[in-house]
């Protein structure tokens, strides 16, 4: 199934990826071929098969909720691209 240009633009939007025109062209072709390849799964009858999300037979893992030291504000903010005081700085979300 060929992916349309609109689909590829929509997916890029969902994924928050700004693509160049060259990347857009390249990915449209490549993703179509990859999706064609993975479409082989549709041949297989999986009726009644339980999905397997991961291989271990463990599900919820609980531990006591005990307070413990965590990173200091300075350590947590050390890699921030922009900082104001004790906060991450981002462009205005609301006017």
């Amino acid at each position: 199934m060929a992916l349309t240009g609109d689909q590829v633009r929509w997916v890029a939007h969902l994924a928050r990826l700004e693509l160049t025109e060259e990347e857009f062209q390249l990915f449209t072709g490549q993703l179509t071929r990859i999706v064609d390849f993975i479409d082989q799964l549709q041949q297989l009858n999986t009726e009644g098969v339980e999905p397997l999300a991961h291989a271990l037979p463990i599900h919820n893992v609980f531990r006591p909720d005990e307070p413990a030291p965590s990173l200091s504000v300075d350590e947590a903010l050390a890699n921030a691209p922009a900082r104001k005081g004790d906060f991450y700085s981002v462009p205005a979300v609301l006017d």
Partner: peptide, 29 residues
């Protein structure tokens, strides 16, 4: 970027059952 696109597509509304859920079933097989 290619893989993020592919994964986003497989999880997106209308394709989740056909791709992601299907893949998890075959994973069990």
């Amino acid at each position: 970027k290619r893989r993020i696109m592919l994964g986003t597509y497989a999880l997106s509304s209308g394709y989740y059952d056909a791709y992601y859920l299907k893949a998890l079933k075959v994973r069990r097989l």
